[in-house]
Every structure is written in structure tokens, then in C-alpha cells.
Design a protein around this nucleic acid. Sequence first.
DNA 1: CTTTGACATGTCAAGGTAGACAGGTAACAC
DNA 2: GTGTTACCTGTCTACCTTGACATGTCAAAG
Lengths: 171, 171
Amino acid sequence: MSLRHSLLGLLAEQPRTGYELTRLFDESLLNVWPASHSQIYPELARLSADGLIRQTASGSRGKKVYSITPGGLDEVMAWLKTEPDHSTRNPAFLRVFFLWLMEPEDAIAFLEREELEHEAKLSEFEAKAELPVRDTSREWAFRLALDWGVRYEREMLEWNAWARRVIEERR
Amino acid sequence: MSLRHSLLGLLAEQPRTGYELTRLFDESLLNVWPASHSQIYPELARLSADGLIRQTASGSRGKKVYSITPGGLDEVMAWLKTEPDHSTRNPAFLRVFFLWLMEPEDAIAFLEREELEHEAKLSEFEAKAELPVRDTSREWAFRLALDWGVRYEREMLEWNAWARRVIEERR
DNA sequence: CTTTGACATGTCAAGGTAGACAGGTAACAC
DNA sequence: GTGTTACCTGTCTACCTTGACATGTCAAAG
């Protein structure tokens, strides 16, 4: 159950509200683990019922601040030591397997649209990478992940250019 | 619905049985779209009920061979032109965001285990890439996907080595 | 002959996820 | 004052996915 543990991981850093957690998923975890508020709120309730987090404050607009409990911290730490599963699902890349069904022009058009997506992602990541890094473990871990994002998008763009050349040459 | 369209894409190439489709998912689509037989058989029944595929033969051991219909072919082609969704979910990489929660030794150990996984994948992909490519569109598309796999794993290994250096230096 | 392993097809329950539906609050600009 | 926007929390249904359960066939090795 990765959503559960991601929430615990984010709460291990500091107390947060469901709304803040939702935004964090959108901003930084989106590329590895998308989650919407409709999943997050019920999960927070379950974590709370299981004693892994606790509501420690409330604020205006019905805000509820949750903090991790010692039991919750044990749970994330244990999860971090379990063998991760390496399955991924990539709906965009799936189409590459079926590129041969398309007319060459359509395949090129597809790759060009993909290129735009990856260029946008790359710019986004590079912009984030320019921000200064405070010397905390948390910031460093985030920076490592971000650097992977930059590498991934750059490599994807190179592959894309190469794939297009292959298709052009075969036409 | 990607499973549905992947099945149609594979059947666009040639008639196949559910068992063969299951093996194809295991062998080549595993890294972008895992699917088990328990998903595939019911989906084939649905595709058949919708007239997108048709059982065109049967063999020993209860074997059922399905072929794509003109309607099914239209459906895949249309799907290939729709805007793909770019969400991915990567349970292994998710842990990188929480690397800071681990002791440096544990983080290094985690990255070392990941390295083994990626080295194994890389070898697998490189071995496949050495096989001769017949000059068909299908084989070329498969080759493009495979090449991405090789690039991805190589980049991941480089990132991994770099990330370990960063952690070592901070220790 | 018998056993093992690959071939081959299916169902079912439990759990995860996406997207729509729903409702209320504070800040700020005009 | 009023409208808009961001804040904030929830539910529900339909669908997808996983893993276990279930069943039977054929070929080849011993």
C-alpha cells in the first residue's frame, strides 16, 4: 500500500493537513505516484483509526492538521526496508509498441507531440533544479529525485529524436 | 482503457490465443503495461461480445484463436490518435523521495539493491537487442521500444551511482 | 505407465484508483 | 457589498488490477 506509506512519509517530515498533502502529491509526487484528494482524505481517516497518525490541531475553514505517531514512524521505516515492486505502467509509451500500425506521418506526429510534453516537463524540472537547496536531508532527497527527472526527460528527448530518424529513414 | 487496446494492437498483427497474448504481455509489454491472464480472458470475451474481435479457430486443449475484425482495427487506429495520458506510477522510485528518512547506510543499501535490479534489466534488454531484426514495421517498433529500455536502464544506473556519491559525501 | 511441466482457459473476492458530485469558508479586489 | 478565487473536507460509483482458486489437456522423459 504505497499511498498509505507516502502519506506517512510526508507526515514524518512535519504535521500537515489533507489539503497540503494533496498539493504535495500534485507538485512533487505526481510523477511517481499520483493521488487525488478523494483517495487521500479516506486514507487519512484510516491511518488515524489505526493509530499511525493523529489529528493534533484544527484551524479555520475546517482545517485538520495531522501528525505522525511513533507507531506511524515505525511503519514507514519498516516499509522503506521492504523490497519494492518494480512494476510500472506507462500509457504513453505503450503506444510505441503499436507505432508500426500507424502511417509513418502519424507516427512522426505522435512523436512530435510527445516531444512537446517532455520538453515541458524538462523545463519544469530544470526550473525547480535552479532553486537553491537548503542543507537538509529532506531537500537533498528531493534534489536526487529531481535530478532523475531531468535525466529521464533528456534521455527521452534524445530517444525521441533518434526514433524519428529511424522512421524517416525507413519511409 | 489500455488493456483493451493493447489486446487489439497485438491481434492486429496476427490471430492469437489468450494464452499467447498473456505470454506476450509477460515478455514484452511487461515493462509498460503488465497484465495477467485473469484480466486478459474476460477482456477477450468482452471484445468479442462487442464485435471488435472474433474467435476464428479452435485447437487442442481448448485453445481459442481470436482475430481482429474491421471494427476492431478501426478502434485501435482511433485509439492511437487519441492524446495519451502521461501519468505513471513507480513504486520503487517513490522510495527515493523518502531516502532522507533512512540512515545513510540504509539508503546506500537500498540504492545498491536497486542497482542489481537495473543491471539485470539492462542485461536482459541488451541480450534482446543483439537478436537480428527482420525488416518489418512491427520488428522496428519493437526495436525502438527496446532501445528505450536500454537507455532507461543505463541512465538509471548512472543516476544511481551519482546519488550514492552524494549520500556518501554528505555523511 | 506415470509423473512432471508446459499448455490452455476460466472465475472470484478484495482492494486500489479516477472522476464526478457535494458543500462550506476566508481573503481580496473592485 | 459582491463576486471571484483559493482554501478545505468529504462521499460515492464505476472501473481496473491483483492474487488465489479451479480445472483440464497433451507431450516427453524416465
